[in-house]
Design a protein around this nucleic acid. Structure first.
Lengths: 338, 338
DNA sequence: TATCTTTGCACAAACGATTGCGCATAACAC
DNA sequence: GTGTTATGCGCAATCGTTTGTGCAAAGATA
């Protein structure tokens, strides 16, 4: 109770020193300002005794630093983003920064509102998973408050910093694996087409098939990173005239939908249908069969993004900076060799 | 760029009105203070044109409100807490509140540091999953900043508000289900013993068995909410002289470990071993067999906790308030009738 | 004794908003 | 013409820090 009402002013009164001196002592600048040992002792003792906690609000107003970063993600209720958020929160905390999380729910207008709030709160930097396609607002903000994009980037030639997975490479790896196991009739269930990872991944799908089977089967279906989408599209595929022998699901959620659809239709995996997907998750190994997948280096993305952001917060002028990290093929038993 | 540097002062200069008037107009208090239509028009136009975003920092300092709540959870990298966080973030946002997430990693000292940071940042309220056993610090903080506990509560008679699952009821439901299916040799793999949900759940385990089989088999093993713990303890159990016919895992993580152990030991679920656990999760339905479990009402917990917190932030004096919400038995195929 | 340095600290102005109070000027009543 | 009320707005203090500058007292130097 006392603790919270304490201010430099009250401490000043109690110790007989000015707020200036108290402030300097508590900021560890006693030496620098030649405060006597005596004063330091008295002030520190009193501060400790009353458990003084300085107001970051006042500090921020005065110093123009909030020691806070903003994190805008679609939703924390998604393993992939939750893990990313976790890594970022921890990494930031180790460097004395707090994290404010805002969810955009994949909505462009939410995203703008979120950025505005963060600007209003004077955060020192922003890590953003862009949901929209228009980089203008973010770019303008970036002039003053550094922004680092993760997971996705804006369509057109935006100069915003970016850290993410090499999605093209990942998709190629997945497709190569299927192809090497004899698959040719491979369908791809995607997320929203205006998302950069989707574009990169479908490009990988196309390119690999174009190499090994130029005029063969092609099927890119779906439009969102949801279980429902995965379910629906798989249903369609399974009921088509000549169903694919393998499905490449572009996210963990889509995969779950696919699994459900297959199970419902009594289609055995990998007996009748092989599955491979993007995103890793603890539970992927617990499914039967365990899912073969492309794991994204979420830890590395989170750490690198935070580090890059902090560098820029400290004035480094490394605006145009795109970092692509390699994905990893994780083998399960969901792909059959045919 | 302009946008971010704008202040009441600059707007005042541009429009020729005082900061007082500008402030009042932008706060929607023009009527109240009899500002002319003319002035309102000019000021609003200018504010819009330069996209003025007021500094929440300055506002907070002056008004003693940050419109921010703090959320301290073990880790967002856990489906259960991630979902809880998601619900709270959304609920808070709808009421104009931002959420700062701090992870305690189940560590008491981290928890205190987290609370201190939140106090320093002058958050308007705190939602906390307590990791420690000593309520003192939280209680003292609660004198000034309302705190609502979720998921767990402190051991001794703390008066802090609390919203959570009726863990005893849930455990009884789970045990009843096992017993009704003929099981008597039931082992329980628990989390840390000083956590209130663990105590409530093991109490349910005991009570049900005491009713149906007073002198029968009892086994409560384990000590943490981790996959490893579930794995290890299950290994032990499976190798004991007379293994249990069913395992009651007290969390989703523990369950995963149990599944892994059973799979490794070629023990069929539910053929040789029945499984039931606490916590719901999307993927529980995708395991084979789907896991029979006790789902916690996370959505309701999140919403109620936020609402309760906001009420208290607005001055309601409802300190001692413990809300227990009913869990739900969700049937899978992981329990065999014997 | 007079001057210069060092020591030890405080004054007061910021930071950017909000808000109690007050003060012109205009409108109106009589 | 005088008193009263309404209208429209600004002054200046305040929130709790940080920080550039200044200044008295003590010590050193000559």
């Amino acid at each position: 109770m006392t603790r919270i009402k304490e201010t430099l002013e009250t401490l000043s009164r109690k110790t007989g020193y000015s707020t200036t001196t108290v402030s300097r002592v508590l900021a560890g600048k006693a030496e620098q300002y030649r405060i006597s040992k005596e004063a330091v002792r008295i002030i520190k003792r009193e501060a400790e005794k009353s458990d003084f906690i300085p107001s970051s609000v006042a500090q921020s107003l005065r110093t123009h630093r909030t020691n806070t970063i903003g994190l805008v993600i679609p939703s924390v209720d998604n393993q992939y983003f939750a893990h990313l958020a976790h890594v970022i929160i921890e990494e930031a905390r180790e460097r004395g920064l707090m994290t404010i999380i805002l969810s955009s729910m994949e909505d462009e207008s939410n995203e703008r509102i979120a950025i505005r709030s963060l600007v209003s709160r004077k955060v020192d930097g922003i890590i953003l998973v862009p949901s929209g396609t228009d980089p203008f607002f973010a770019e303008e903000t970036d002039e003053t408050i550094p922004i680092v994009l993760i997971d996705r980037y804006y369509t057109v030639g935006s100069r915003l910093s970016y850290v993410g997975t090499d999605n093209y490479q990942g998709a190629c790896d997945a497709m190569r694996y299927l192809v090497d196991n004899g698959h040719r009739r491979i369908a791809c269930i995607q997320g929203p087409e205006d998302s950069s990872p989707v574009r990169e991944r479908t490009r990988g799908y196309q390119d690999v098939l174009d190499q090994v089977d130029p005029d063969g089967y092609r099927c890119i279906a779906g439009d969102s990173f949801t279980v429902e989408n995965g379910y629906m599209e798989t249903k369609f595929l399974l009921n088509s005239d000549v169903p694919p022998t393998a499905v490449f699901a572009l996210s963990n959620t889509i995969l779950l939908g696919a699994v459900q659809a297959a199970r419902e239709s009594k289609v055995s995996v990998p007996g009748d249908l092989s599955l491979i997907c993007f995103d890793d998750s603890v539970f992927m190994d617990y499914l039967s069969p365990a899912v073969t997948r492309i794991g994204q280096p979420t830890y590395e993305i989170g750490v690198l993004a935070t580090k890059l952001l902090i560098k820029r917060m400290n004035g480094a002028d490394i605006r145009e900076n795109r970092i692509l990290l390699p994905p990893k093929l994780i083998l399960g038993q969901s792909v059959r060799s045919i």
